[in-house]
Design a protein around this nucleic acid. Structure first.
Length: 430
RNA sequence: GGAGGGAUGUGUGAGCGGUUGAAACAGUCGGUCUUGAAAACCGAUGUACGGGAAACCGUACCGGGGGUUCGAAUCCCUCUCCCUCCGCCA
């Protein structure tokens, strides 16, 4: 959420940034200004009445202490209550309408973000490695997976429907090996602390990271008594919300956490997109990196976090590129985002495997996550960041497609062999 | 599911319906002292919103919501969460 005072004082800038995101400011800002002044008027009026009541109450207390008669003053103050309640209602109503506008506003893009309306305007920041060369036509992972007997989409459909997968044998082990490899790398070499959070969260948590109220249609909702729970679409949600409504110790910043969790996405509106293979699933597993940072160093932390994610690909020997998302292609809560795209020879394209973002204080304001800067008495909002490190399902795809051999088997990259216990994935015998 | 107990500021933890935005201690920051540090002592230390150029003033907030009252951290109702005991359970 953006700061109310900031929006009021910098309306022209906010409108410009919204336009850069491809939004119509007149539409999303609606009657911001008139509701804002309506709200402030109601607050001023109500507070004047409250001040009068408080003064009178003090006087009554004084009179009673001296055993004097206060009945006249009490009578006078009695009808103030109705007026105050009325004023409070008016203020609360205006506040709710203002909040509705405010919570629907996306974060403002950082000045370093390229301006553009679609992914066409994304800018490639760098490229690592080279695409593997084959003396045969490389196959897509769904063909390889099926031939090897390690990926079973047909039975997954029987169990759950489209966009689910069953992994068998070395296919299942590959998923587990990748997760362990990534977690070990981030905890042992990159300084992250591993956490294992709940996979279902309440609405407050979804609100804190920005999924609610706008994007309920992308989530799986679980009915539970009076209040519903939600399946997490990414570990970002529970991990960032760990510190909701808390004031963090400045000396401990940046706090770097990593979590391996399943992610559940309804993928509403993506019918006909990525229908083959396991690129787009209702459930996939992901190792997530989350940081809580001081504001002044959050962009350095974004670079580090992105490199931490890239290291996974480098150690696995997978060709990739890093792309800076343009203003029109960024997510709702992000101020700046790098996508890491891995090369998939079976499909002859780069495919997103990680998305690393700085949210500045957008999530921290919603979730009320603060710290106290040294030498200051006031607390300030932290900056939150996160990125995939990496999406395990898509890494599985990348391994299978990039390390496929002419006979249909898959070579296991060196870094992964200790975790796999073998150097080659061959067709499953049973 | 049944019976009790609790939720207060950065933390621990006081708080007869009326100068309690809130004791005390710890923490943090500033100062005195010291060659330096520690200790000791002194002082300052919540958030949000509104008004104001500012100094500052006002209002709200003691888990959430509602009520009683001229006045609620304090009394009543309700919800949530935590703890103890019983039952069930991987």
């Amino acid at each position: 959420m953006l700061d109310l005072n900031f929006v009021r004082d910098n309306l022209a800038l906010v409108e410009e940034k919204l336009r850069q995101r491809g939004m119509n400011p007149a539409e999303v800002l609606k009657d911001f200004q008139s509701i804002d002044s309506e709200r402030r008027l109601a607050i001023t009026q109500t507070e004047t009445l409250q001040a009068r009541r408080n003064k009178a109450s003090e006087e009554i207390a004084r009179l009673k202490k001296n055993k004097e008669d206060a009945s006249a003053l009490i009578k006078e103050t009695q009808d103030l209550r109705g007026q105050i309640q009325e004023g409070e209602k008016k203020a609360a109503d205006a506040d709710a309408r203002l909040r509705e506008i405010l919570t629907a506003l996306p974060n403002l893009p950082h000045t370093s973000v390229p301006v553009g309306t679609s992914e066409q305007s994304n800018v490639e920041a760098r490229r690592w490695g080279t695409a593997p060369q084959f003396d045969f036509t490389p196959k897509p992972h769904w063909e390889l997976g099926e031939q090897l007997g390690i990926l079973d989409l047909e039975r997954a459909a029987k169990l759950s429907g489209a966009r689910f997968a069953v992994y068998w044998a070395l296919g299942a082990r590959l998923e587990r090996a990748l997760a362990n490899f990534m977690l070990d790398l981030h905890t042992r070499e990159h300084g992250y602390t591993e956490v294992l959070p709940p996979y279902m969260v309440n609405s407050e948590s979804m609100y804190g990271t920005g999924q609610l109220p706008k994007f309920a249609q992308d989530l799986f909702r679980v009915p539970h008594g009076e209040k519903d729970l939600w399946l997490i679409p990414t570990a970002e949600v529970p991990v960032t919300n760990l510190y909701r409504d808390e004031t963090l110790d400045a000396a401990k910043l940046p706090i770097c956490l990593t979590a391996y969790t399943p992610c559940f996405r309804s993928e509403a509106g993506s019918y006909g997109k990525d229908v083959r293979g396991i690129i787009r699933q209702h459930q996939f597993q992901k190792v997530e990196l989350v940081k809580f940072s001081r504001p002044e160093s959050s962009y350095d932390e974004l670079e580090k976090l992105t490199h931490n994610a890239e290291t996974v690909l480098q150690k696995l020997g997978l060709h990739y590129r890093v792309v800076t998302l343009c203003t029109g292609d960024m997510g709702f809560s992000a101020a700046k985002t790098y996508d890491i795209e891995v090369w998939l020879p079976g499909q002859n394209l780069f495919r997103e495997i990680s998305s690393c973002s700085n949210f500045e204080n957008f999530q921290a304001r919603r979730a009320n996550i603060r710290y106290r800067p040294e030498g200051k008495s006031k607390t300030e909002l932290v900056h939150t960041l996160n990125g995939s490190g990496l999406a395990v399902g898509r890494t599985w795809v990348a391994i299978v497609e990039n390390y496929q051999q002419a006979d249909g088997s898959v070579r296991v990259p060196d870094a992964l062999q200790p975790y796999m216990g073998t150097d080659c994935i061959k067709a499953r015998s049973m």
